[in-house]
């Protein structure tokens, strides 16, 4: 099913054998459970939408850092999604971006103060990354793609789902990097004492390598970004090529063929 060249057909038999979770999970669109499952699997921000790559590479040197970063981002995602959704009818069309940025930056600063005051140890290790959550594309992307157009409950759940999906992705990458690059997992010595840590995994090149291998494995199992080939957000074959679309993250259209949507149940 290549939308790049509509003339190419995927053999239906092969298509049937592909792992497709939407065959087994049918959830009503825009409800809390659907949004959460969507954020964790169907539109995982790191592996499907390719958002938030910078924190994925930078803060995954250890699992504790990854969890801290992921949970802080989740908290801010939920808060900003909720408030942007509540204000969506007030914020004018062309003041979208500045308003979103003000709201997101305020919440990040508040979380920054709270962490500095009440969890100083975590604040020490996450340090400069907290203010960088402001420019984390996941938050802007979801505000643009979902919170600005849907109700508060759905947006809150969407923020939660995306945040948990992001945290899961971070933990995945961080486990490999910490295990191979340091011999520990969340501070606990896992590798035997004779293990010589492969230092490159805690440096930037190692981050790219680990992420690349994960993406490759997921594409092979058809649970990764390769699934974007199945998307056609407008349903009219207009945009077509989701695989290389730079705006797929902000595109609010629901993927047609690969979705936790019970199409036969109606339009909701």
């Amino acid at each position: 099913m290549s939308t790049r060249n509509p003339g190419i057909m995927i053999d239906p038999a092969r298509q049937k054998k592909r792992f497709d979770l939407s065959r087994y999970i049918h959830l009503k669109k825009d409800t809390a459970p659907e949004r959460i499952v969507n954020g964790i699997y169907f539109e995982n921000p790191v592996f499907m939408l390719a958002l938030g790559m910078c924190p994925t590479l930078a803060t995954t040197t250890s699992v504790t850092n990854a969890v801290g970063m992921g949970l802080s981002t989740t908290a801010i995602l939920m808060l900003s999604n909720l408030f942007i959704s509540l204000l969506r009818r007030i914020i004018p069309e062309r003041m979208r971006m500045p308003s979103y940025i003000v709201i997101i930056a305020s919440f990040v600063t508040i979380v920054d103060f709270l962490m500095q005051g009440f969890t100083p140890a975590m604040y020490e290790s996450l340090g400069v990354y907290i203010p960088l959550i402001v420019v984390n594309c996941i938050i802007m992307g979801r505000a643009e793609a979902y919170a600005g157009k849907h109700g508060p409950l759905g947006s809150l759940a969407d923020g939660f789902g995306m945040g948990i999906g992001f945290t899961g992705a971070l933990i995945l990458v961080a486990s490999v990097r910490e295990l191979l690059g340091n011999g520990t997992l969340a501070g606990f010595r896992v590798m035997p004492a004779s293990y010589e840590p492969i230092n490159i995994f805690v440096l930037a090149p190692g981050a790219f390598l680990v992420l690349a291998v994960f993406v490759a494995i997921m594409n092979r199992l058809h649970i990764g970004a390769a699934r974007r080939d199945d998307w056609d957000p407008t349903g009219k074959f207009v945009c077509g090529d989701c695989r290389s679309c730079p705006r797929v993250a902000g595109c609010g259209g629901k993927p047609a063929a690969d979705a936790a949507v019970n199409l036969h149940g109606g339009r909701g």
């Binding site: 407008t234 349903g235 259209g253 036969h264």
Partner: peptide
């Protein structure tokens, strides 16, 4: 199905 055509139109 015809439902899907409706969904596509709504998005556009």
């Amino acid at each position: 199905t015809s439902d899907e055509i409706y969904v596509g139109q709504k998005y556009s």
